[in-house]
Amino acid sequence: MHVHILADSGSDLPLSFFEHKNTSFIPLRVQLGNKDYEDLKEIEPIEVYHYMREGKVVKTSQASPETIRNRFLELAKQNKPSLYIAFSSELSGTYQTAMMIRQEVLEEYPDFPLEIIDSKCASLGYGLAVQFALKLSEQGQSLQEMSSSVKEYCQHMEHIFTVDQLDYLLRGGRISKTQAFIGGLLNIKPLLHVDKGRLIPLEKVRGKKKLYRRIIELMEERGDDFKEKTLAISHGDDLEAVEELKKMIEDHFQPKEVYVNIIGSAIGAHSGPGTLAVFFLNSSFHHELL
């Protein structure tokens, strides 16, 4: 029996990915005005970015405990081996909630084989890990083997990204006021990365061309064997920037594949329009399925 894969909308994978019979989607929640929406299921990212460009505040919250519980119970009744790869616990409370619900469900179904991983990843860095897990499931790996492999994969995932305005990250409590102030000086574009699941400012670069060149340099410093690997780019409704950066990456590295998708509402509400992020495995990770 293949292991069932669960992931939430912090993975920034399209809903079409979850049409696979061996996957389940758990939406985070987005609030516009006084109305709550389930990310991707009830609201599209484009709507959120439009709302933000008008200067309006978008709020987010973790996945509904009821949604998580119902999905766990459905799988428990089938006694189906399941692996939930969760959005970084440093950015959402969904992982902690899922762990509590797991204990509740196991009290009723003590033999239910369910593992939960804190990916410590975000956006398509997390999404690539979910895609990797599905490959492992299709190869027939056991739940324990998959859990170990996916944890290692996540530990080696690099996130390099830039935002158009640090104010959005500040508003959502993702960075400090000092970091936002420094980043906003002289129209300097910040580069950030993810360290142990947290967003960390890396350096500041002036000018878009220099910014893209620096991203390429960081990829060279941190990764290798790109011809054998799938990379990913996610964006806050800026396809023109994606195409420019994607071409530079393809010309420089000739990667196996560059997977592109828009940043979903739950993350985009904090990073804002114009965000651009690159994800790749660092040089210390090697696996025959890549």
Rank of each mutant, 00 (worst) to 15 (best):
V3C: 10
V3T: 14
G10S: 12
G10R: 13
S11Q: 14
F17I: 04
T23R: 11
I26P: 14
I26K: 06
I26L: 15
V30Q: 03
Q31C: 07
D36T: 06
Y37D: 03
E42Q: 12
I43G: 07
P45F: 02
V48C: 05
H50P: 03
Y51H: 11
E54H: 09
V58Q: 03
A63T: 05
S64C: 04
S64N: 14
P65N: 00
T67Y: 08
I68P: 15
Y84W: 03
Y84I: 01
E90M: 01
S92Q: 12
Q103A: 06
L106F: 06
D111K: 15
F112Y: 13
F112I: 01
D118E: 11
C121M: 13
G125C: 11
L128D: 12
F132M: 02
F132T: 00
Q139A: 15
S142G: 09
S148I: 06
Y153E: 00
V163H: 04
D164M: 03
Q165A: 09
Y168D: 08
G172H: 08
I175P: 12
I175W: 06
K177A: 14
L186P: 10
L186Q: 07
N187I: 02
V194Y: 10
K196Q: 14
L202S: 15
K204T: 05
V205A: 04
R206T: 10
G207H: 00
K210V: 01
L211I: 02
Y212G: 01
E217L: 10
L231C: 09
A232H: 14
H235F: 09
G236E: 08
A241F: 00
E243A: 08
E244R: 07
M248A: 04
H252W: 05
E257S: 02
I263R: 05
G264A: 02
A266L: 08
H270Q: 03
A277D: 02
L281T: 03
E288S: 13
E288L: 14
L290E: 04
